[in-house]
């Protein structure tokens, strides 16, 4: 099962490597990991996408909680939640393909940034699934560079993760 774990982390040097070190040392999967400061400058929020059965996820949560720099965490996939990922894809487009590309991008609520006569960047944000779908729709084009942000997310109820 895929789980998204949100972690509030002390904004200390080395905190990120404690988390990534834990995952590699104990052989836990990381599908993606994002981290950035929050509105409280002493805290960062990290979002980890991982997979495993209940027992493994339970261990991951307990081991994360043991890290002194972890202030709070929550598996947001245990309830309603919102997940978003940003994708940027640099593609080669001929003028003949441009109109079709515009339609696709529009359907995904994305946008197009022109780089040159033959290249543009597709930008879109959505769930990882949506991002996958978009990329499938672009299959006829040549993607020369792809950057995905990894998932970030929040619970979609009134609860909040606090330190």
């Amino acid at each position: 099962m895929r789980h998204i774990i949100s972690v509030l982390l002390e904004n200390e040097s080395g905190a990120l490597s404690r988390v990534s070190g834990l995952f590699s040392a104990r052989g836990y999967n990381i599908e993606s990991l994002t981290v950035a400061p929050t509105n409280d400058p002493t805290l960062s929020r990290m979002t980890i996408v991982t997979t495993g059965d209940e027992r493994r996820i339970d261990q991951i949560e307990k081991q994360l909680n043991k890290l002194v720099d972890v202030a709070a965490l929550k598996d947001i996939t245990r309830g309603g939640h919102l997940e978003r990922e940003i994708v940027l894809a640099k593609v080669i487009v001929t003028s003949a393909q441009k109109a079709e590309l515009e339609t696709i991008v529009k359907a995904f609520n994305g946008s197009l940034i022109t780089v040159s006569d033959t290249q543009c960047i597709v930008e879109m944000s959505g769930s990882s699934e949506k991002v996958d779908e978009l990329l499938k729709s672009l299959a006829s084009l040549t993607i020369i560079e792809l950057a995905r942000s990894g998932v970030t997310g929040l619970s979609s109820d009134e609860s909040s993760l606090t330190a």
Partner: peptide, 8 residues
């Protein structure tokens, strides 16, 4: 005292 050893 360490929750992580429970069910490990």
């Amino acid at each position: 005292i360490d929750p992580s050893v429970i069910d490990k």
